[in-house]
Simulated assay, not measured.
Amino acid sequence: MDKAASYLKKHTESLVKDVGIEPACELTGKSKATLGRYYSDHDEHADRFMPIDAVAALEAAASYPHVTAALAELNGMQLDFDERRPNSNESGGVNSDVIALSQRFAMLMAEYQQSIEDGVITVNEAKRLLKETTALQQVLIDMKLHLEEESG
């Protein structure tokens, strides 16, 4: 088995274990034995991989998109994982977005103040500022979607 196949199988196993074997069986409609074959490194299962619909179902339930991230890494790409899950603020509407926006901006300013205190922004401080900026940007995107929805 080549390194890429082995890498995908390890991440498939991580995905199944993240969700749990019993819930994974229910979500995919596959038996424990079948799921085990998808991540087995034995020669007789070297060419068996989990179908993409099963991967999608498990990644929707998992804490992290293990297989998708592995595929991206194998192709020299990197994923930007939004831990909030899409549309996590659906019910609040624009008013909730305005509150979230001001909270995120306050967090960004607090992080900036802490970072600039010594007159130098280190690499780690820049990464934290970038993370806060990205979170602020996501709130603005959510707000835009809510405004578009309310305007018709």
Score class of each variant (00 low, 15 high):
residue 130 L to V: 13
residue 122 T to Y: 02
residue 26 E to K: 08
residue 55 V to W: 09
residue 23 P to T: 11
residue 14 S to N: 10
residue 60 A to L: 13
residue 85 R to L: 15
residue 29 G to I: 14
residue 97 D to R: 10
residue 105 F to K: 06
residue 25 C to G: 11
residue 11 H to N: 08
residue 107 M to Q: 11
residue 23 P to K: 05
residue 125 E to T: 08
residue 90 E to L: 14
residue 46 A to T: 10
residue 33 A to E: 10
residue 82 D to P: 09
residue 78 Q to R: 15
residue 110 A to P: 01
residue 1 M to C: 04
residue 65 P to L: 14
residue 118 D to H: 14
residue 111 E to F: 05
residue 42 H to A: 08
residue 107 M to G: 06
residue 23 P to S: 11
residue 61 A to D: 01
residue 67 V to E: 00
residue 107 M to E: 10
residue 130 L to M: 12
residue 143 M to H: 01
residue 44 E to T: 15
residue 104 R to Q: 13
residue 3 K to L: 15
residue 86 P to W: 15
residue 6 S to I: 04
residue 29 G to H: 09
residue 144 K to W: 03
residue 126 A to M: 05
residue 4 A to I: 03
residue 52 I to T: 11
residue 40 S to Y: 10
residue 61 A to F: 15
residue 107 M to L: 14
residue 36 G to E: 07
residue 37 R to E: 01
residue 64 Y to C: 05
residue 123 V to Y: 05
residue 149 E to W: 09
residue 92 G to I: 06
residue 120 V to C: 13
residue 94 V to A: 03
residue 64 Y to S: 02
residue 88 S to F: 15
residue 37 R to T: 12
residue 102 S to T: 06
residue 73 E to G: 14
residue 71 L to E: 08
residue 99 I to K: 03
residue 29 G to N: 05
residue 49 F to A: 04
residue 121 I to R: 05
residue 39 Y to V: 07
residue 56 A to F: 14
residue 105 F to M: 05
residue 20 G to Y: 07
residue 49 F to W: 06
residue 29 G to M: 06
residue 69 A to K: 13
residue 123 V to C: 11
residue 10 K to C: 02
residue 111 E to W: 12
residue 62 A to K: 09
residue 107 M to R: 14
residue 113 Q to M: 11
residue 52 I to W: 15
residue 109 M to C: 08
residue 95 N to C: 11
residue 15 L to I: 07
residue 130 L to A: 14
residue 81 F to Y: 15
residue 136 L to S: 03
residue 72 A to C: 10
residue 53 D to H: 15
residue 126 A to Y: 03
residue 85 R to T: 10
residue 7 Y to N: 04
residue 140 L to I: 07
residue 142 D to W: 08
residue 76 G to A: 12
residue 15 L to N: 01
residue 129 L to V: 06
residue 110 A to K: 13
residue 143 M to K: 00
residue 74 L to N: 14
residue 75 N to V: 00
residue 75 N to K: 12
residue 25 C to N: 04
residue 16 V to S: 02
residue 38 Y to E: 02
residue 76 G to P: 07
residue 32 K to R: 10
residue 127 K to E: 04
residue 43 D to T: 13
residue 145 L to P: 00
residue 122 T to H: 04
residue 147 L to H: 08
residue 24 A to E: 01
residue 67 V to D: 01
residue 60 A to P: 01
residue 37 R to K: 07
residue 6 S to Y: 11
residue 24 A to C: 03
residue 13 E to P: 01
residue 117 E to V: 13
residue 95 N to K: 12
residue 96 S to K: 10
residue 75 N to Q: 12
residue 150 E to K: 13
residue 15 L to R: 01
residue 23 P to I: 12
residue 68 T to N: 04
residue 111 E to P: 01
residue 134 T to D: 02
residue 136 L to K: 02
residue 97 D to F: 01
residue 108 L to R: 08
residue 91 S to F: 08
residue 118 D to I: 03
residue 1 M to T: 04
residue 134 T to A: 14
residue 136 L to R: 02
residue 53 D to N: 08
residue 112 Y to N: 04
residue 127 K to L: 09
residue 60 A to Q: 12
residue 7 Y to W: 03
residue 16 V to C: 07
